[in-house]
Design a binder for these strands. Structure first.
Lengths: 110, 110
DNA sequence: TTGATTCATCGTAATATTGCAATGAAGCAA
DNA sequence: TTGCTTCATTGCAATATTACGATGAATCAA
């Protein structure tokens, strides 16, 4: 049905899934990598950088902003985006706890 | 159009997106967490554990297996699943490199 | 053999995602 | 004001995902 039964999972599981979902598209990965690489606000040139149409980029930026991973500030006719470091680190802790489960586990047995 | 333009992104970006996409559903997160917690093969009881119908669980397991994160071995009428530790660690390195980008970056400026 | 169990696959309905043209909104320059 | 630039939003088509009933395949027990 295209709809996930989120109510039968824990908040932690749903949170991991939400963050992962936003990383589940290469355009959003590319946007984030570009913002980190430039290491400052990016004003406007994301469309040329990524190579998708302007409405498509705008939509991906909206999803990243909705999760709090980036923030934008209006500068005249342009909008400048950058990583929200504080929220990025919060997200990272949640994802690291998930990815590092293997540290507690022994080994595969099959 | 529901289809991602993977060809305009790097292999690394597409790989991060593929791993993230599989973590983008709480049922798959729950399955992986259960496999780690049990720390051995899980034979059959995943349907009761997760709370989705058997075909749905089977479909999620197939996606996890397709990415190499779990492996299954047939034991009689049952199938036993466990984490593929080697591939999990490979995946983890790729994801950690992405999540740890902030270590190189300075700070947000907006 | 028959019946029961377990899991995969098929088929399908409901919903979500992706991408972009068209359009709108807001600011700046002249 | 007009025109230009930049980005967001709307609307829509194409495709993907999620979920599950029905069914199939394989194994084991009797």
């Amino acid at each position: 049905m295209g709809i996930s039964k989120t109510e039968i999972f824990t908040d932690q599981q749903n949170e991991i899934a939400l963050f992962s979902k936003v990383f589940g598209h290469p355009a959003r990965v590319a946007i984030l990598q570009h913002l980190f690489r430039i290491d400052t606000c990016v004003c406007g040139d994301l469309v040329e950088e990524i190579g998708l149409a302007q409405p498509t980029i705008s939509q991906h930026l909206k999803e990243l902003k909705h999760l709090g991973l980036i923030k934008g500030s209006i500068e005249g006719t342009r909008v400048c985006y950058c990583i929200d470091t504080e929220n990025w680190i919060k997200m990272k802790h949640i994802m690291l706890a998930f990815l590092n489960q293997d540290l507690k586990a022994k080994a595969d047995c099959c």
